[in-house]
Design a protein around this nucleic acid. Structure first.
Ligand code: ATP
Length: 814
DNA sequence: TTCTCCAGGATTTTT
DNA sequence: TCCTGGAGAA
């Protein structure tokens, strides 16, 4: 993540013309292209190095003259590589004569190859980090890789471009997007923001949300963008009336984004591609610069990403991609498997290396996964072997319902923890859909098992955080109407929907940034649609931003955000209202401010020259916009990992539980009617199983509750596709599960087997103040049932409303 | 303009 | 089952 901040080194903000020039942002937020390093704010020596690097491209000269890298003699390093890599891996790391594709199964060390290859290029091939571009699937993977390379090399990686496609494209667009008319202050719109924009677009086009779901239109637009179809072509290709109207919405949507100076996730990619394709002088700079390109998880790249790579690799033709077609699980969002299958055709003189030794899993796990994925058609046959022992067979457990499923898995987790001293962090529970996480979470809470829930509602998608972010974004990008609309009346400022709509129309008409419109509308004598007092309120609102903007020179980043939160009345609003969630919201905001503080620390460490806080804010926002959910995984904390199967990609755990192995859930009901979709689900299962190092357990239930309705289910076909000899059926206790257990009975049964004895006979009543071991204080709202088995609903100060089982929660009256 | 209540839809996966 | 958003009243 630290690398993110580098790109802001050259951004300059000028205070004089704030709010001005929506389209010619350069004056306000001028960014020097990397091709013009004359204003590079680094110490002189670096500046010269990079300048020359760009101009003459000779590493040797740079090395001898300036580089302060302390790389030992290359020979010990090579010896080390030979020791830590097997021969094909070694070959993949050291082959540098042309395009290279590493096609290999799970756990064969593909990521390891990328990591060592970066180190090799720097240490042995004497490339400057500056000349390397590496792409990973998540920011977390990028961070880890950077750390690994750091450890291997022990020298500065400054200048190395390592990140996700989205973050790298954003970076390029901030530098050079202005060549294709993109203001470098652009906001990045996530799904929620897109929703707001598409609704507006639909309103403009007279398409009601009833006849077409906004999400469906967005999906169509995203698909079109993945094919690089602009609204015009999309309209030409429209096959029916519906698509014609969709095309109109698409066009309007794009216009709105542009007006707001915003890009959505897809735009980041396709605009970067457009830049590279249509501005050869810009493209060339990058093509020359990146002598080596490395890509992990290549099987899940989409068409724009492929074009991005193809363009960048044009000059040096040295691209190294690694991937596994059996692990392609993102075709539903446009990933194109042809990228990896036709790699040989796409680049010239391609060398293909296969890795066949798996270092991760036991034989049973590997064989089970292998047999499963063999059911798929049209795949590359791969050999995968291991010199590990057979290990335990895969466990398959049948349970009566989803509650006992959670109980069973947590029993197992607790058992591993107490009996085998397995740290929680070495165990993970995977599931197909996010809803499933809830029961596991509740069960963890009941038992006091520390857990880490990955995904679901990402921290930065929480309401309160998005609100604060909207204030920040508006401060950076005064044209951002989606952010404006979000917070202009939050806290309440008596600025209702109608008035806001009028102002936005006015801003569009006058081609003014929305914030500027809010400011000037007061003086606008001819604008009769908005009441003068309302105009005054808009003006008042705009002065907030003016004030903050004038403070960006003096305040630190966290203080600035704190000032914003206080000045705008947001914290007061939360403090005053009686919603039990408010305290948790405030805490989240503080956590956000702490994150800003940490970010600033890293930023300052990387960019020594003083930088205006608003630049840091911009960098921080970008960092925030592009973090993915998996990025929440923290090292060093011992907690059970809960996540979707998709999130599990690229990770490994000694103990893996996969829950919900039922037809209609996994494979998901929406995938049942197409062979391709089923095969993708099967690959997902393959990915899940191959995450396991020592033991994998698959659970399924007889009946599952969905939307409050219980459904009978059938075991997933994937269970049958694993040959019996790799599997053992487990019972959830010594007794054979009978056909039907009411959930309460199950729970009681299990709880007596576990560590009980601590539950009290104490009776709670609504209104009682109680204390909970991990949730702190709260007020009882309601009680259901009696004694230790009672379900007590408590409104906790810290985390809000929760229902707990008395005997597990260890509640005490205060 | 804001608040409250009710209906109806949702959850497949995510940068 | 829970949440969102729309409609209608204050
Ligand atoms: N040559 C090796 N010697 C020892 N361990 C290795 C070797 N190569 C890889 N490993 C280990 O094997 C495990 C899997 O490696 P890695 O994650 O790089 O595989 P991968 O092919 O990227 O896996 P996947 O595609 O399933 O995500 C890691 O724990 C890694 O440290």
């Amino acid at each position: 993540m630290a690398h993110m901040s580098l790109l802001y080194g050259t951004i300059c903000f000028s205070h004089d013309s704030w709010l001005e020039n929506r389209s010619k942002g350069s004056r306000w937020f001028g960014i020097d292209s990397i091709s013009n390093p004359s204003r590079y704010p680094f110490p002189l020596r670096r500046r010269v190095v990079e300048y020359l690097h760009d101009k003459i491209n000779t590493n040797e000269w740079i090395d001898q003259t300036f580089m302060n890298f302390q790389i030992e003699n290359a020979t010990p390093f090579l010896n080390r590589l030979e020791k830590e890599l097997n021969p094909p891996q070694f070959q993949a790391v050291t082959y540098t004569d042309g395009p290279l594709l590493v096609l290999a199964g799970a756990g064969s060390g593909k990521t390891r190859v990328i990591t060592y290859r970066i180190a090799y290029l720097i240490a042995v091939k004497r490339l400057a980090p500056w000349n390397i571009l590496a792409v990973t699937f998540t920011n977390k993977a990028a961070g880890e890789m950077k750390e690994r390379v750091d450890v291997i090399l022990r020298h500065s990686l400054r200048g190395l471009w390592l990140g996700t496609f989205h973050s790298l494209c954003a970076r390029i667009l901030r530098y050079d997007g202005k060549a294709i008319g993109i203001d470098p202050r652009f906001s990045i719109y996530d799904t929620t923001d897109q929703g707001a924009a598409i609704k507006r677009a639909m309103a403009v086009c007279n398409v009601s949300p009833k006849e077409a779901k906004p999400a469906a239109i967005l999906a169509m637009i995203s698909k079109a963008k993945n094919r690089l179809e602009w609204p015009e072509q999309f309209e030409e290709n429209a096959r029916d009336e519906y698509e014609v109207r969709a095309a109109r919405v698409y066009k309007t949507y794009q216009a709105i984004l542009r007006e707001n100076n915003a890009l959505d996730f897809d735009d980041l990619l396709i605009e970067a591609v457009r830049l590279l394709l249509h501005k050869p002088e810009v493209g060339e700079t990058y093509q020359k610069r990146f002598q080596h390109i490395l890509v992990d998880e290549y099987q899940d790249t989409n068409h724009p990403q492929y074009l991005f790579l193809r363009e960048l690799a044009k000059h040096h033709n040295r691209i190294c991609a690694v991937g596994d077609d059996d692990q392609s699980i993102y075709r539903w969002r446009g990933a194109d498997i042809r990228n990896i299958l036709e790699f040989e055709r796409d680049f010239s003189n391609v060398k293909i290396i296969r890795l066949e030794q798996n270092y991760r899993s036991t034989r049973n796990i590997l064989a089970a996964a292998g047999h499963l994925v063999q059911q798929n058609s049209g795949r590359h046959k791969k050999t995968l072997w291991t010199d590990k022992e057979d290990g335990e067979k895969l466990g398959i457990v049948r349970l009566p319902d989803e509650i006992s499923e959670a109980i069973w898995i947590l029993n197992e987790v607790s058992r591993l923890y107490t009996e085998k001293s397995t740290p929680y962090g070495r165990m993970a529970v995977f599931y197909r859909t996010n809803v499933q996480s809830r029961l596991f979470e509740e069960e963890c809470i009941k038992r006091g098992v520390p857990y880490r829930l990955i995904g679901n509602i990402a921290f930065y998608e929480r309401k309160e955080i998005k609100d604060v972010l909207a204030y920040c974004r508006l401060l950076i990008n005064p044209a951002d109407m989606v952010s404006f609309q979000r917070i202009v009346n939050l806290p309440k400022r008596k600025l209702g929907a109608k008035a806001v709509q009028c102002l936005m129309d006015y801003a569009s008409l006058m081609k003014l940034p929305i914030l500027k419109a809010a400011k000037t509308i007061r003086e606008e004598k001819h604008e009769a649609t908005i009441h003068p007092t309302t105009r005054e309120r808009f003006y008042l609102f705009s002065t907030l931003f003016q004030k903050w903007h004038s403070q960006t020179k003096t305040l630190s980043l966290p203080t600035l955000i704190e000032t914003i939160v206080n000045d705008c009345g947001y914290s007061a609003m939360l403090e005053e209202d009686n919603d039990p969630q408010s305290q948790a919201r405030l805490d989240n905001i503080h956590e956000f401010i702490t994150a800003a503080m940490q970010f600033e620390k890293r930023f300052d460490a990387e960019i020594p020259s003083p930088v205006d806080t608003i630049v840091k804010l911009a960098a921080f926002l970008e960092n925030v916009a592009l973090v993915s959910q998996i990025d929440q995984l923290q090292e060093g904390e011992d907690a059970l990992i809960l996540m979707t199967l998709h999130g599990a990609k690229g990770l490994e755990f000694p103990y893996v539980f996969i829950a919900g192995m039922e037809e209609g859930l996994f494979p998901h009901s929406k995938s049942l009617d197409s062979k391709e979709a089923i095969e993708e689900e099967r690959r997902l299962c393959y990915v899940g199983i191959t995450r396991g190092q020592m033991r994998v357990v698959l659970t399924h239930v007889e009946s599952r509750r969905l939307y409050g309705r219980s459904e009978w289910t059938r075991p997933s076909r994937f269970l049958q596709e694993i040959p019996d000899r790799f599997v053992e059926e487990l019972c959830w206790s010594d007794a054979k599960p009978s056909l039907y257990h009411p959930p309460g009975v199950m729970e009681a049964f299990v709880s007596f087997g576990g560590d009980s004895g601590d539950w009290r006979k104490e009776q709670f009543e609504p209104g009682d103040m109680v204390n909970h071991r991990s949730f702190g204080f709260g007020v009882v709202l309601g009680v259901e049932g009696e004694g230790g088995r009672a379900r007590v609903t408590v409104d906790f100060q810290e985390i809000g409303k929760k229902t707990v089982i008395q005997e597990f929660a260890k509640l005490t009256k205060v």
